[in-house]
């Protein structure tokens, strides 16, 4: 079994694309404070939670069943508890910087982090 030249090119290009994409993520990823978490369900915006040091909030989405318990604490956010079968949202753990996100497919919930305000030109040049 031997790799052909096309195999190597394919693997190389996909690898470069993946690494480039991750690099782009890192570059976009801003560590600036003043971020907030946007929670949406079925594509509809539900809640906006500020992520700043010292702020704590717990939020329950859904009813007695089909719920996600979201916890924001000290500038980070996670799904603390959910009764979905796969628990992927809970296992995603804490997120704290844009563009990280937590997705709960069974309940169509997306939690994503965005900067509260767009970066000012003055801030960049300074």
């Amino acid at each position: 079994m031997r790799f052909t030249r096309a195999d190597k090119w394919l693997i190389g290009l996909l690898f470069a694309g993946a690494v480039g994409g991750i690099g782009l993520n890192m570059a976009v990823l801003s560590t600036a404070s003043g971020q907030e978490a946007h929670i949406s369900k079925n594509g509809q915006p539900m809640e906006t939670i500020p992520l700043r040091p010292g702020y704590h909030e717990e939020l329950r989405l859904g009813g007695a069943t089909g719920y996600n318990l979201v916890e924001a604490d000290n500038g980070r956010i996670r799904v603390k508890e959910a009764d979905c079968p796969d628990q992927l949202c809970v296992r995603s753990g804490w997120i704290r910087v844009s563009p990280q996100q937590i997705v709960c497919l069974p309940y169509r919930v997306v939690i994503k982090i965005e900067s509260a305000r767009p970066a000012d030109v003055d801030e960049i040049t300074r």
Binding site: L14, A18, G43
Partner: peptide, 30 residues
Amino acid sequence: AAILVASADLYWYLPYLMLLALPTGVATGL
């Protein structure tokens, strides 16, 4: 998944999956 949750931001995640797909794809191919 992006259609299910109506959020195109999920593509942010694609490079990480793709990086893992390379070794697993090569392994299943071999």
